[in-house]
Every structure is written in structure tokens, then in C-alpha cells.
């Protein structure tokens, strides 16, 4: 296994005084695709937000290093500038801020600015790949977008920003089969030695497209088991019960 770009150890976090993460250990090596699965309420989205630095999520213990930096003292913007990207489950609309202006501000902040012509050409290419209509350039970001349009817009941002690690927080939820394929193809096109992915989902379906190197199962705020792609197929067949039953027995 090559060098870990993300290394989480013993991470505890609470929301509004309630502890959700109870000692998460997880490592993602440079350029790998990892899946984090688990039933509703296991803490998957909390982990995503905590890693990105949402102020609502309070870290109470443990450590996270990202690309050699201690992530936890940093604000969300500093984390993003290190190359961490969160594909939001519920992307936020910002009326008045156009997609183009939003992307320009993000690229500028990350010192990835490019000449206007190159920017527009790249934007145009990426939008075509993701089947996003040109009109979305001047539309206000996520404002009045359908669920599927929002998810594709997240992947567009991923494509323009090229982070070191992308966390996809239930990016598959609410997508129909075709949209799921477009989004998954987009992610597969982008990931490689320079970009790893941590995909959070409770359905194995998206994993058929993404071919994860590792699969982890989160339950009650801890990673209870990890394995290869087989683990996702097992969950598809048998559900979480057998795994969680074993895990519960093992920790008892």
C-alpha cells in the first residue's frame, strides 16, 4: 500500500452534544478508491462533514492527517486548499452567484486560476461530458436545480478543481440509472494516481461503476470491518445484518 493521503485515527465527533463518531480509524492511500458503507444513522455523513470542517461538528478526540498536514485545526477553506473536496449530499443554492463566478472564485482561492479562454473551454468540455446544458453557466449555483442537476454540478466542480481526495457523500442518492452512470463515469474519468475517492453510500449500486479498492463498514460511529470489493457484493446479497451481527459479537 502506497503512502496514505488520508489517515484517520480514533476520531470522535459530536453534533449538538451528541456523540456520533466514536473512534473512527481509516486510511486512504494516494490515488485509491475507498467505499464507506453502513446503514442509516451509522455516522457516514457526520464523518464527511467532520473531515471537511463543518463548524456544527465538534471533534472531541482523535486525529486526522491529510497529505502530511494535521487537518483538524484548519478551517474548511484551508482544508479545501490542501486538496480535500466534499461532494455534498445536499448542495446549497446561492442565489445571485452564477456557476461561472462560483467556479472562478473557487479556482482563484485554490490558486488554480487559468486564463479566461482556457477556463471557458475546459468548462465547456466538462459540462459536455457530464451532460450539463450550457445555460447552467450563467444560472445561479444550485438555484432551482433538480436533485440530479445538483449532483452533476458537484462532479463538474470536482472536475474543475481536481482535488487530491474527493469525498462523495451519498452522491448516488436520488439519481436514476442514467444519471448515476453519468456521475459515476465522471468520477472514474477523474480518479487516478493524483486523485483518490472516498465514496460514502448505503447502496452498493454505485460501486459497480466505481470498482473500489477497499470497502469499509461504519456502524455506530466506528469502522467495524473492512475488506475488498467482495464485501460490497456480500452486503448487496445479504444486507448489513450478518456483518453487524458478527461485529457486534466481536466487540461484545
Amino acid at each position: 500500500m502506497s503512502k496514505a493521503v488520508l489517515s484517520i485515527s480514533g476520531l470522535h465527533a459530536s453534533v449538538e452534544g451528541k456523540e456520533i463518531l466514536k473512534g473512527v480509524d481509516l486510511q486512504v492511500a494516494q490515488g485509491e478508491i475507498h467505499a464507506l458503507m453502513g446503514p442509516n444513522g451509522s455516522g457516514k455523513s457526520t464523518l464527511a462533514y467532520t473531515l471537511m470542517g463543518h463548524p456544527k461538528y465538534m471533534v472531541t478526540g482523535g486525529s486526522v492527517s491529510f497529505d502530511g498536514h494535521d487537518l483538524l485545526p484548519l478551517t474548511a477553506d484551508a482544508r479545501a486548499r490542501l486538496g480535500l473536496f466534499l461532494c455534498f449530499q445536499y448542495p446549497t443554492a446561492i442565489p445571485g452567484v452564477s456557476t461561472v463566478n462560483f467556479l472562478r472564485a473557487a479556482l482563484r482561492a485554490q490558486e488554480k486560476e487559468m486564463p479566461a479562454r482556457e477556463f471557458l473551454n475546459r468548462l465547456s468540455t466538462e459540462m459536455k461530458e457530464l451532460k450539463i446544458d450550457e445555460s447552467f453557466r450563467s444560472r445561479y449555483i444550485n438555484d432551482g436545480f433538480s436533485g440530479g442537476e445538483k449532483k452533476r454540478m458537484e462532479i463538474l466542480q470536482l472536475a474543475m478543481l481536481r482535488p487530491k481526495l474527493a469525498i462523495l457523500d451519498e452522491t448516488d442518492s436520488g439519481l436514476d440509472v442514467d444519471a448515476l452512470r453519468t456521475v459515476a463515469d465522471g468520477v472514474m474519468r477523474l480518479c487516478g494516481p493524483d486523485m483518490g475517492v472516498l465514496v460514502i453510500t448505503h447502496y452498493p449500486r454505485i460501486l459497480e461503476h466505481l470498482h473500489p479498492d477497499r470497502v469499509h463498514v461504519l456502524h455506530d460511529g466506528r469502522v467495524v470491518t473492512s475488506g475488498g470489493a467482495d464485501l460490497a457484493r456480500q452486503i448487496e446479497r445479504e444486507g448489513y445484518e450478518p456483518i453487524l451481527g458478527t461485529a457486534a459479537a466481536a466487540t461484545a
Partner: peptide, 8 residues
Amino acid sequence: FYLMARGV
């Protein structure tokens, strides 16, 4: 937060 998560 959404903007900050993009580095702004």
C-alpha cells in the same frame, strides 16, 4: 460553508 468547502 459551501463556498468555504471550495477553498473560498
